[in-house]
């Protein structure tokens, strides 16, 4: 059986997390290649529908990441993210999606090390869980 290579979608906010990923790059830090990053200006842009769509399409894991509370470039976009994602987590659980597959993280532009940590942890955890099953089917 081929080795399970999880694919994890990351919604990263432009000012903090995306910049941290850039910093990890300029610092030549190494982490697994399982991530596909989608940039948004603020984590507050992330509609829970995006997360559900990602799982539906085949994501084995999803990360929504933004600035630390209090540091949001747009004042408090991340606080709305926090509320939405907290509710979403409950929903995902009820759908049978293991809680390790979805993470809400606060990663500031200077925290490239934290990103690498999160990345390594997430890949390990998702690998241990195996591919997402059952496939999520949401009526169009």
């Amino acid at each position: 059986m081929a080795e399970f290579k999880p694919k994890i979608v990351v919604f990263a906010c432009n000012w903090c997390t995306y910049a941290a990923l850039d910093l990890a790059g300029t610092s030549r830090m190494k982490y697994p290649a399982n991530f596909r990053v989608i940039k948004v200006m603020c984590s507050g842009r992330v509609d829970p529908q995006f997360v559900l769509e990602a799982f539906k399409q085949g994501a084995d894991g999803v990360i929504v990441a933004g600035c630390h509370p209090g540091d949001c470039h747009y004042v408090n976009g991340n606080m709305k993210t926090l509320r939405r994602m907290t509710m979403l987590k409950k929903m995902l659980e009820e759908m049978g999606i293991e809680k390790e597959r979805f993470r809400l993280e606060w990663i500031s532009a200077a925290e490239a090390t934290k990103w690498v940590q999160v990345a390594n942890e997430m890949v390990e955890q998702v690998k241990a869980l195996g591919p997402l099953k059952p496939r999520l089917e949401v009526r169009e």
Partner: peptide
């Protein structure tokens, strides 16, 4: 949001797979 419309973001999600 112009430049980050639902259909635009969704298209990226789908295209990841």
């Amino acid at each position: 949001q112009s430049g980050f419309k639902d259909n635009q973001v969704m298209a990226q999600v789908v295209a990841a797979f």
